[in-house]
Design a protein around this nucleic acid. Sequence first.
RNA 1: GGCCCUGUAGCUCAGUUGGAUUAGAGCGUUUGACUACGAAUCAAAAGGUCGCAGGUUCGAAUCCUGCCAGGGUCACCA
Length: 550
Amino acid sequence: MNIQELVIAEIKKAVKKNIDAGIFPQAEIPAIKLEVPPQKEYGDFATNIAMQSARIFHMAPKKIAEELIKQMDHDYLAKVEIAGPGFINFYLRSDIIYKELADVVKKGNHYGTLTDNGIKVQVEYVSANPTGPLHVGHGRGAAFGSALVNLLKAAGYQVESEYYINDAGKQIDNLAASVNARYLELLGKKADFPENGYHGHDIIETAQRIIDKFGDKYLNMADDERISLFKEVALKEKLAALREDLSAFNVHFDVWFSERTLHPDAVKSACEILLKNKAMYEKDGAKWLRSTDYGDDKDRVVIRDNGVPTYLAADIAYHKNKYERGFDKLINIWGADHHGYVCRVKAAIDALGFDSSKLEVLLLQMVSLYRNGELVKMSKRTGQSVTLAELIEEVGTDAARYFFIMRSLDSQLDFDLDLAKSESNENPVYYIQYAYARICSIFRQLAEAGIVYEGPANLELLTDETEIALIKKILSYPDEIRSAAKDYAPHRIANFVHELAADFHSFYNKCRIIGVDAPLAQSRLILCEATRNVIHHALDILGVSAPEKM
RNA sequence: GGCCCUGUAGCUCAGUUGGAUUAGAGCGUUUGACUACGAAUCAAAAGGUCGCAGGUUCGAAUCCUGCCAGGGUCACCA
């Protein structure tokens, strides 16, 4: 139990004692939360519980606060006082933070990783169609998703990441037809390019590679036979390219789930359940999901009048499969352009008899690229868009990931390419990495000079305001992990580690490490060590590298 | 028109679910700091009617209602 938990337990006890003594009326109070006050004069942490329960108890907040403090055992604190309209401020004994700092260093690179909470979560993200290269929008999903997976793991969840491969259906047929058309064109034949075909240059490259390898071997084959052969070739190639792009972007999946495995059995059995539950009906030769029963604008076709299942059919079967795997929580990360889709999928889940509230769909807003202050135009239709691979090439994985993650999902993201690739003080990524490299440099110099500090450190020598601020920042890290994970908000870790780096730079500029008295130097080195571990831990969550030299 | 997201400093954005006479970062602007551990740094200044108008209460950038502006989306496409 850490000190905050102890205080909360004490407050709860005090509430109960007051109720038993008849001072407070019999009533439930809201959950007790501790927060860090905006100014250090208001203590190390504080609670507003007296104000929150004022309405419930029909008592003045200050009176409630007084009675609470009377019943609390707080010898382990330096001071407890009532302030403002009814805040209770707690002041730590100065030696507490030093003890906690010593614990931080003892935990080494595990500090920030919380104990297993037994909750099984699946995160499905990217899941882009394997019909072409990933573009920057996918990049945001990939960076966010992988950071979320890392964050949840750090917070003690059991996490499995998954990529859903849309390797069945019309878009794959289009892919095959597009490759076929390019193949014929390259061999000097006339070919009608499919109406909804993929115009990207990568399709031509795929066709060219086939020719490089096999020449005109397939030219005299029947069209449909050739197309179905090219389908497999193209799919394999696109998937390999996806994996490669993602891997270069520090994104890895535990499971690659193929849509094909759902056809036809899983789709059929899901439909049977829906029919049995009267959530599906036939009209105009098609089978419809009664999604309006669950708040959708209209019912949705699951099986077309020609008997071919829609995309929704596969998705229903897919989510059924996910639920059957026994996760406590399912997270889908989708582009905001799919938001209308959420309702019908949840409708299907409920209609199948599962609990749709277990599914959390996180929608990410659009990404716009800016170069020289101007919007970089993108068009998916003509294949003229900036790919993820090009972005990585231009600004690097670290900067790209950090820029994608540092904003909340709900905000449309303006990605400033010039800022991301500037190797200067303008760039927040380098600011953080620089702090890390600086610390490494200190230890490197000590090692080179053969300096060893002996004897136990006296951390109470760390009394400068920059030292205290840095220590407190480090100590707040586990709470930051906990709350960011609870809210699926990895961008808070990005902000946190930037603030941590700032606290370190301030400390570094004010306090010398090498060259001061040995006990003080040793204490400061321990502070450096703790800072280094936390920066590394946080950057690992973001999927950004921690270079020892820059 | 329905639904979703956004509107906070010149620009890009935080603001941990309603808290503290002073709403925070970064960039940009201005002024200082390297004969000592990495100046990719630090210290400080200027910069705000939190889109507008009501409402809820001890207390609102945060919750409710109505407007205004920008973006997204409304398929037997995926």
